[in-house]
Amino acid sequence: MRTTVITVATLSLALFALSAQGRELSKSHRFACTWGSDIAAGAQQSKLSGISLYGARKRLQVRKFQQPWMRMTAMGITEQTYNSTSRLKPAAVKQTYYEQCVRHELAQR
């Protein structure tokens, strides 16, 4: 029970800090971070479901993307996700990716 309280408090602080940082990002940077986190979560779901990297890449090949850079970026995110030994749930991967993307974008300034 105590661990749950600590975890919830830590998560709340992290989300508060993230929301404060998120306001500083441009709309396009927020979109890119959200989009990338969705790709990472989907790749993790595929990996945990037993779909091969080849199968996941094949799915991305037939998918329609809004921008030309998205297909190759999605391939890279998927490959990195498959190369990771992480067994985290897709929602945790999505959150982690988003948080690190925001930190990266803010550090670029």
Results as ranks from 00 to 15, higher is better:
Phe31Ile: 11
Lys64Trp: 03
Tyr97Cys: 12
Arg63Ser: 11
Leu106His: 08
Arg59Lys: 15
Ala41Trp: 10
Met72Lys: 01
Phe31Ala: 12
Thr81Gly: 04
Thr81Tyr: 04
Gly42Arg: 12
Gln66His: 05
Ser52Leu: 09
Ala92Val: 06
Gln100Phe: 02
Met72Arg: 00
Phe65Ala: 06
Ile39Trp: 13
Gly76Leu: 07
Gln80His: 15
Glu105His: 00
Arg59Gly: 02
Gly50Asp: 07
Tyr98Phe: 15
Val93Ala: 01
Trp35Cys: 12
Lys64Arg: 13
Arg87Phe: 06
Gly42Phe: 07
Ala74Trp: 00
Asp38His: 13
Ser86Cys: 05
Gln61Thr: 11
Met75Gln: 10
Phe65Met: 05
Gln95Arg: 10
Ala43Phe: 04
Thr96Glu: 10
Ser28Thr: 13
Leu53Gln: 01
Val93Arg: 08
Tyr97Gln: 13
Gly36Arg: 06
Leu88Asp: 14
Gly76Ile: 00
Glu99Asp: 11
Ser37Phe: 06
Gln44Ser: 08
Gly50Ile: 09
Ile51Trp: 03
Gly42Tyr: 05
Glu105Leu: 00
Phe65Leu: 05
Val62Gly: 04
Gln100Trp: 00
Arg59Glu: 12
Gln108Phe: 02
Lys89Met: 14
Tyr97Phe: 15
Lys47Asp: 01
Glu79Lys: 03
Phe31Cys: 06
Leu53Tyr: 02
Lys94Cys: 01
Ala74Leu: 05
Ala74Ser: 08
Ser37Ile: 03
Leu48Val: 10
Cys101Phe: 06
Gly76His: 05
Ala40His: 02
Ile39Glu: 10
Gly50Leu: 07
Thr96Asn: 01
Lys47Trp: 00
Arg63Leu: 13
Tyr82Asn: 03
His29Pro: 04
Leu106Gly: 14
Arg109Ser: 01
Gln44Glu: 14
Thr34Ser: 13
Thr78Asp: 09
Ser37Trp: 07
Arg63Lys: 15
Ile77Gln: 08
Val93Lys: 08
Val62Cys: 02
Glu105Ser: 00
Tyr98Thr: 10
Arg59Met: 06
Arg63His: 08
Gly50Ser: 15
Ala43His: 08
Gly55Leu: 04
Ala92Leu: 13
Met70Gln: 12
Thr85Glu: 07
Gly76Cys: 02
Glu99Arg: 12
Trp35Leu: 14
Leu53His: 07
Asp38Glu: 09
Ala74Asn: 03
Gln95Asp: 10
Gln95Lys: 14
His104Ser: 09
Ala32Asn: 01
Thr78Tyr: 05
Met70Asp: 07
Asp38Tyr: 10
Gln100Ser: 09
Ser46Arg: 08
Arg71Asp: 09
Met72Ser: 08
Pro68Thr: 04
Arg57His: 10
Leu60Cys: 14
Arg59Asn: 14
Gln108Leu: 09
Lys89Thr: 11
Tyr98Gly: 10
Val102Tyr: 07
Arg63Trp: 05
Thr73Tyr: 04
Gly55Ile: 01
Met72Phe: 01
Ser84Gly: 12
Ala32Cys: 01
Arg30Pro: 11
Gly36Lys: 02
Tyr82Pro: 06
Arg30Leu: 10
Leu88Cys: 09
Glu79Val: 06
Gly42Ile: 09
Val93Met: 08
Arg63Gln: 12
Arg30Val: 03
Arg109Phe: 00
Lys89Asn: 15
Thr78Glu: 13
Arg71Asn: 10
Leu53Pro: 06
Ala107Gln: 14
Ala41Lys: 03
Ala41Cys: 13
Arg87Gly: 09
Leu106Pro: 15
Thr34Cys: 09
